[in-house]
Design a protein around this nucleic acid. Sequence first.
DNA 1: TCACAAAATGATATGTTATATCATTACTAT
DNA 2: ATAGTAATGATATAACATATCATTTTGTGA
Lengths: 154, 154
Amino acid sequence: MHKTSLQQALQQAETNCRASGSRLTEKRRHILQLLLESDTPLSAYELAARYQEQFHDNIPAMSVYRMLDFLVSETLAHKLNSTNKYIACSHIACDHAHEVPQFLICDNCHQVKEIGISKAIIDALDKSVKQAGYVLTQPQIELHCLCAACSRAA
Amino acid sequence: MHKTSLQQALQQAETNCRASGSRLTEKRRHILQLLLESDTPLSAYELAARYQEQFHDNIPAMSVYRMLDFLVSETLAHKLNSTNKYIACSHIACDHAHEVPQFLICDNCHQVKEIGISKAIIDALDKSVKQAGYVLTQPQIELHCLCAACSRAA
DNA sequence: TCACAAAATGATATGTTATATCATTACTAT
DNA sequence: ATAGTAATGATATAACATATCATTTTGTGA
Ligand SMILES: [Zn+2]
Ligand SMILES: [Zn+2]
Ligand SMILES: [Zn+2]
Ligand SMILES: [Zn+2]
């Protein structure tokens, strides 16, 4: 992520939190920054290590988990359930409401692409879930793939 | 799962393994049985505990992982990546080839329904993945829901 | 049948992810 | 200033997973 868009995202995160009456503290902001700067999803423990390196401040993993919970609750970050790692939301600076996310996870280089679930998929999912008598609660989808670069190399 | 269908599933598992040239050992069969008898997905450690209770034989978690890997590779069981638990395949006794699975996971009672992904969903996923330049590798989908009973109770 | 090789399992150690709980610090508002 | 709330720290422990080497079991062919 480029410096300008990093700054933009952080600023927008600030604005969003202010609007929702929550506090984007320095440490939470730093965690978000680490996520924004990373090419790949990070675990809580990896974040704690990077925090030490980059901000020269020791931060317990416990606290990182809490900050991640906060960021996720503000839709500034997402948790990938299939890999137990976290990524910054790709749409922090967008003005539209956050859609139901679909994550394409490259199993080779671990890059992740976050896209909105298309209407066609939502409709189809909805139908199959309804037929089974179920009600969707958190319709986040994680698909394991190879990205363009990695599939060419393979 | 009823006793007759349990026996049927175990027998079919035996047949399938024989056909694929692999060995459904007693312990592997017991692990599969525990999965078949369970209403909800189980972790490797939970399986080790139940193994002790039911078969009065101590089995290290390490070994359970290996047996689960075997069962998964034979499509006799599935791993739910979003919960780190395992379930028996619902279609062991079916004669058709195993489809790409879609799991509906009740976040309240933890029951799981395994259904085949509909053509509509596959097409839609395929399209969105392709548009992003990605190639699907393991198109298993896990959706977090409330089951019919739990959604009525809520 | 015996010897050998391959497959499966056991034993041990360690790494990784996550939660529970209580203490302390920082912020907010009266 | 003081009290209440939110955030963070510290510590312990639980839960999930892998690596590696030893041992046992099984299948195969001389
Ligand atoms: Zn997002
Ligand atoms: Zn890649
Ligand atoms: Zn199945
Ligand atoms: Zn339920």
